[in-house]
Write a protein that binds this DNA or RNA. Sequence first.
DNA 1: GCCGAACCGTAACGTACGGTACGTTCCTTG
DNA 2: CAAGGAACGTACCGTACGTTACGGTTCGGC
Lengths: 220, 220
Amino acid sequence: MNEAKTGEPKAGEAKASEDWTARQRDVLDAALRLMVEEGDNLTMAGVARRASCSKETLYKWFGDRDGLLTATVQWQASKVRVVPVDPGKVDLASLAESLEGYARDWLKVIASDTSIALNRVAVSHAGSGKDNLGAIVLENGRFALAKRLKPVLDAGKKAGHLAFEDAETAFRTFFGLVGRDVQIRLLLGDWPGLTEAAIAEDAARATRQFLALYGARKEQ
Amino acid sequence: MNEAKTGEPKAGEAKASEDWTARQRDVLDAALRLMVEEGDNLTMAGVARRASCSKETLYKWFGDRDGLLTATVQWQASKVRVVPVDPGKVDLASLAESLEGYARDWLKVIASDTSIALNRVAVSHAGSGKDNLGAIVLENGRFALAKRLKPVLDAGKKAGHLAFEDAETAFRTFFGLVGRDVQIRLLLGDWPGLTEAAIAEDAARATRQFLALYGARKEQ
DNA sequence: GCCGAACCGTAACGTACGGTACGTTCCTTG
DNA sequence: CAAGGAACGTACCGTACGTTACGGTTCGGC
């Protein structure tokens, strides 16, 4: 069973970094690296070896294997903290700049080794409902992204640059335009040639298309 | 090792249905159902039990566990055969109808239990390169879809209804507009409310948006 | 310098499951 | 009807790994 730290987070919420000691964070980092290399095949002994700690410690700290995986995923999630958007500049240019920047960041993230590894084990585990890794990853990936972008969209709308009824639908469209087939291809082991340059180009194209669809004026 | 039927298919290609006997197809169906229920946790004994066959038979027919999984995925892939598009009607209305129909079909597929299960195990396996389930699923999912849609796009372009330079890019945009966050959410265990009605609505919206982006005339 | 707690390293246990062997049954074929 | 093969059921083996237990070591506090 899990050690029941103070105020166990709900469903997909990330644990605050302070919930772990420095040493524990080191262990989690080791587990994370191992997860990138081995995927769901990582073994408790392997983690212990890599982290130079004993298995007993792993079990004391994280309860069991699922607990370790969950903690690892939450630990990674807690590392990429959301940068809030400043609602200052709302002219069309900086709006486009915001969107494009988010698109770039996001593509970079989902193309990263750790993101792919994390999503892979989360998808595997989502099948047999042992834990809620799927919910956690979703909460800190897809949904965090939405929460981060909604203010931008709303500001754009308020300023008269964007026209939509439902921000959620608009967001999902943007999501689709940016991601397209990239994530599923990466998860399935394909390499859709996401170089830095390609990412920048994709982000720009997605932003252009999104503005064409949801821009208040015609800028086709 | 695999039984080396005549002309083992390359990489992601599906084996023709005739490569399996009726009994073998039954066994593969059983494996498929079990895969939907248990995901990658399905056991050889479990499949044998479900299919009322012996484990020895499984090993004789499919070589090993990976062989069985591969065969199962290919078997499922061979069941959803591609309906070729008729290049006859190329007016704008029937073009839109084609696109919308494809979008509907595809959404229905990726929301199905079997598709989710298949993609889940393929994603898991894509991590550790034991087999090429990822490539197979990709080939029969994402890439098959492209092959099926490209002619429609080309016909639409030739008829002057669509304007794009690269059919691949256009396809990927359509892919994104239709799928959005649906597939990853499903794989991660979320349920994005894909009722029959919602699917129809999404398909219509995606088609509308795609035509807005790639339509030769303004039909915003 | 001593004590206890936390932690390391390792050995050991139990189990689940992939893979194999073998006796039996059933079906085909001559 | 006899012979042979294919497939069923089951028991078995080996191993990998999750989990537990235990002795040795470090370290902060008295």
